[in-house]
Design a protein around this nucleic acid. Structure first.
Lengths: 124, 124
DNA sequence: TTTTCATATCATGACATCGTGATATGTTAA
DNA sequence: TTAACATATCACGATGTCATGATATGAAAA
């Protein structure tokens, strides 16, 4: 079917090599589905903000309470709290209450890996 | 200086343990500077879009020309070309011209690693 | 109880990003 | 040449995200 040289696609691009249909069919089978790309892009969006990256960076060194994060980054409490909420909602940080304090930490090693590989990439 | 019990910070948070000043000083020293966070967040922003992730996903399987990407993802050419430009500008894909075609590939293994660790994270 | 402190949530205006139509560029074929 | 094709760029309206001020919650101290 794919080498039928009169069989056309909807659009009119790239008919130069008819092997392309094979390539396209082959790679289409091997990628995740729509909903996984949606979820994954939401996940990576979280890393796309300097404030959140700073928080991730701090927590990759040690667990901290909200006020220490504010202090270390010189950011106001609303900003930090809002970003922590987003980080929490996306399963990137977790926390435990200790009296009136909330001690935050990274959810798992994936987070640290992604952060570090990214940093390596831009520094090379 | 940091244990002076009358020395206050600008805001009035978290004076419960005076050990916190030490913690803050310690972690502050170990994080990248402002410009690196800015650059890194721009880098990760690129992963925060499903269309770009799909392109990255395809190219992690094999190198492809623009029209094959359009075809495999069922996206119009403008969309793909625009996203490829962004991917190129952020050093995530590279390409070589072959006649009128442009064959795209991932810049390096960092990209594939980040993509795959992210996928692993959301699938667990 | 009242106050203070640590943190969370809500609302909002400034700004960024998305997909896409229109159009340009550059290459090959006729 | 001219036509067809593969790809790139521009412009723009719709939508999303950001930091922050105002305010709420809830725990411990007074």
């Amino acid at each position: 079917m794919e080498n039928n040289n009169l069989e056309n696609k909807n659009d009119d691009m790239c008919e130069v090599f008819n092997s392309h249909d094979d390539v396209v069919d082959r790679v289409k089978e091997r990628i995740p589905d729509e909903s996984e790309f949606a979820e994954l892009s939401e996940f990576f969006k979280i890393f796309g903000n300097p404030t959140r990256l700073k928080i991730i960076s701090l927590l990759s060194i040690e667990d901290l309470c909200v006020c220490d994060i504010c202090d270390a980054l010189d950011l106001n409490q609303t900003t930090v709290s809002n970003q922590l909420r987003i980080l929490r909602a996306n399963n990137i940080v977790k926390y435990q209450k200790e009296g009136k304090m909330a001690r935050y930490s990274l959810t798992d090693l994936h987070i640290e890996m992604i952060y570090k590989v990214g940093l390596e990439h831009i520094l090379e």
